[in-house]
Design a protein around this nucleic acid. Sequence first.
DNA 1: ATGGGTGCAAAGGATTTGCAACATT
DNA 2: AATGTTGCAAATCCTTTGCACCCAT
Lengths: 162, 162
Amino acid sequence: MGWDILLTFAAYLNHKMMETEVYTKLIEHGVRPSLQRIAILQYLLTHFNHPTVDDVYRALCTKIPTLSRTTVYNTLRLLADHHVAQMLTIDDHHLCYDGNVEPHVHFICKECGKVVDLFSEKAPSLRKPVVVDGNIIEEKQLFYRGICKECASKAKVNDNVQ
Amino acid sequence: MGWDILLTFAAYLNHKMMETEVYTKLIEHGVRPSLQRIAILQYLLTHFNHPTVDDVYRALCTKIPTLSRTTVYNTLRLLADHHVAQMLTIDDHHLCYDGNVEPHVHFICKECGKVVDLFSEKAPSLRKPVVVDGNIIEEKQLFYRGICKECASKAKVNDNVQ
DNA sequence: ATGGGTGCAAAGGATTTGCAACATT
DNA sequence: AATGTTGCAAATCCTTTGCACCCAT
């Protein structure tokens, strides 16, 4: 197979990629699309389990063998800055990201550290920045903390055993 | 000056300390009071600028020369666990504490990292745990992010200069 | 004498930085 | 050519851990 065939194939893939939803989303938010950025946002938009930087890295490094953690850090921060993703820091030692930028409540379990979306709860929404006491508010986030369903039932079982 | 005098003096100080508000507060929340714990909570209750672990350490290590960071970490975590203080992790690299456990909204400036209380905003309150979708919710926290008054006016000045 | 509290030093982890190579325009 | 992007390696910073000492009951 010659170089010309490879080039044609690459051009075809490139063209296909530009048709994707993720590509468009990046462009719309002013982020230059690159292979890595597309892959990372793609991952965020298909995994709603609030992945950490390392989760994203480990999931993608097999598909993009040259991927580095630095790039994942940079890209996720970039996406958050451009409001394509949300950065969640509910707990120390639990920095994670969420591709869903629609307002919704996050719940973190003190026991297992899991982050859960609570769509049933009323979340503060903010379409455009507002000013409060002179401060420009761009984002609102509501967090709940407690014990999740699974951990609560586990604790109950343990109580009975004791 | 003999040992008996020193002992009497120590006993007097001890007695005085037990009369303090901070001492009572610790007892009420099931935390055994120690010199370090009293000092740390005292600091939290008189400094409303959302100090980090290091802020607390640096402020107190001159007064208690033997104080270690480990103790400050342990104590602040202990206070948060016993709901004598709030642990705030609004941003990665910005873990701080708040001695005010009454519900109020926190605002963090993306520019300078400062944390400000917004008492004018309606904050979610939670007197006792509630159950949502099987999860036990013990705390609710509402965070805002954006640009603070000072940074916003600085940015405006720079715009004019350019 | 037993358990809890403290503090040092070391280990551990997560994130950032500097820099060189690379891709894209 | 110029600018932006990537990725390695090293550095940095924050936090935890292990252990020994100390105090109080």
